[in-house]
Design a protein around this nucleic acid. Sequence first.
DNA 1: TAGTGGTCTAGACCACACC
DNA 2: GTGTGGTCTAGACCACTAG
Lengths: 258, 258
Amino acid sequence: MPSLLGNQPLYRRIASEIWERIRTGVLRAGEQMPTETALSEEFSVNRLTVRQAIAELQRVGAVEIRRGIGTFVAQPPDLIEVVSTLPVRAQQSDSTLDALIARAPSAVSGEPLRTVIEQVESFGLASGVAAAVAAEHLDTDAGDIYRLDTVMIRDERPWILNSYWLPAEFAVAVDHMPEHGLVVLALTAGLGLDLHYRWRAFSATAADFDEAARLEVAAGSALLVRDGVTAVADGRAAFFVQRRMRGDTAKFVLRYAE
Amino acid sequence: MPSLLGNQPLYRRIASEIWERIRTGVLRAGEQMPTETALSEEFSVNRLTVRQAIAELQRVGAVEIRRGIGTFVAQPPDLIEVVSTLPVRAQQSDSTLDALIARAPSAVSGEPLRTVIEQVESFGLASGVAAAVAAEHLDTDAGDIYRLDTVMIRDERPWILNSYWLPAEFAVAVDHMPEHGLVVLALTAGLGLDLHYRWRAFSATAADFDEAARLEVAAGSALLVRDGVTAVADGRAAFFVQRRMRGDTAKFVLRYAE
DNA sequence: TAGTGGTCTAGACCACACC
DNA sequence: GTGTGGTCTAGACCACTAG
């Protein structure tokens, strides 16, 4: 244990040591790490102690564990930047959706593949606390709100969880949503609505068990949350939406016009 | 183990069971949980298995562990909303800073206490990859950039880590920064500059070891990252800044003017 | 089949906070 | 001191992936 902070527990010193090897390039991105047994022999500790160190490195995003195969130094994630230019007016398709579709890498060479789709998971009358909160955002009565849960899939991997709350008058748009279509397109193209943002908010949270399972990440992973209210031209609120995505895969950029 | 998914490992079923107790109010927020030993007897498993379950609940934010005391059902975090109204022009003090100071709860009754301060941790010429990236954002030469690292402290707890990269001409502002002052105030009031955003970006990341230690959170916790470039009236970039904060303590809201 | 990580046990001792 | 969570060991067996 040729390490630094003598006061730290063993597993943390081992984590630091491995981290250092990654940082300095002794272990390179994508490379397979020594097995847990090998490391436990090298550091003369129990395998469980090594596992504790590796678990921390995984949570930090430094290594990737592939069960039955081995542990690997993590590759930098490929991050999609979703850019908006401010001030925006009208169309909400400015950023998120176009970007999703346009920037997804093409699988077949040359052919711009549409690899982002939005899949409906559930739809029905909203209830409970969430419905009450949504009602407040939408200036409507809580009994009259529909909830639509979808998942956006990018390159065949779940990417963004969406929960929409819509007043009844706008909920009919869901019927206009084609298989693998996008909710917002169903509202704009399908219903001929002119949408614009009323507000958006950004926060971060740890994935709970349900979110973790649906996004295929570990419970507790960092999620980026963007929620907001979108309205139509005459000022009525069309929907309140909350989007949750893996933190390391998306970045929202707001450019301010000069 | 009166549980659901029979295929899951023991520790996960135990975590689900406890989670269910919290969700349904059998265990209430703030309440102390049974000790690890008690739980291990109740579920007839080894204490380590219980610990694994509790660790997951902690990462998810469901419980809070106080060493030497006990484990408690987590309280909902008190979150500060930082609101901007769009379109913004000029002053950047719109949101972040004013909000930080104004909305911090008062310790002494009635007296609006200024509980948010910004403390310089290091200052000097920037180098390495980070400096190169900053140079690109700032349209400057990489050799001429200063880096300023600060921490914002709210109610005596570290809250936001800030890294500023400034061209030499603006770095002098640091000399104008009073003890416990705010960097942006030093630039505006101290140097008489008229600042405005060029762009901002939001993302989320897992706290690395350094960030975790400085923010007093566990490695791997969800952090909200906001970075951006602020310019002065004539268009020159004044600084590139990256702010990292505990995800559960801050939320950035953008309101769009009608 | 061989090799990897994943789960679980039994038991020991330590570090910390409170009384 | 007493009780809490934190660390570590030795050893066993399982589940998954690849060849």
